[in-house]
């Protein structure tokens, strides 16, 4: 949904690799994870636990909570407030999260 602008000093950009649902993807170290995901066109970024409606970041400043993703095993992290680190494993969330190994175990 977003693209990186041209730069006359591209070598200054510290590019790294992260994994989104297992797929490798390029990102810049230190940029907000949500930004990297938008550049990688991960849109919709999540589906709500209430009705399964598709969503993507709205505010990029930590107030709307539309950018929740799973980062290195921790679910519902605000991607707009999480800086990219080399080798991060990200999973996009579909609906309500599961609890440990117990996801949907009851009933």
């Amino acid at each position: 949904m977003f693209k990186l602008i041209e730069s006359d000093a591209p070598q200054r950009r510290r590019i790294c690799e992260i994994f989104v649902d297992g797929e490798p993807c390029q990102a810049m170290i230190g940029e907000p994870l949500a930004a990297a995901l938008l550049k990688a066109n991960c849109v919709p970024m999540r589906y709500t636990p209430v009705s399964g409606a598709p969503r993507a970041p709205l505010c990029m400043m930590g107030v709307c909570f539309e950018c929740l993703v799973e980062v290195d095993g921790t679910p519902n992290v605000q991607a707009c407030a999480t800086p990219v680190r080399e080798g991060m494993h990200v999973r996009l969330i579909h609906g309500a999260r599961s609890i440990g190994q117990l996801g949907g175990a009851a009933q």
């Binding site: 609906g95 309500a96 609890i99």
Partner: peptide, 21 residues
Amino acid sequence: CERALPFLDLPTLHVRQTGDG
């Protein structure tokens, strides 16, 4: 806590999961 998939079948005195998860 935020909504989660159902995991707790019975309410306990200290922790319970609501119908909304």
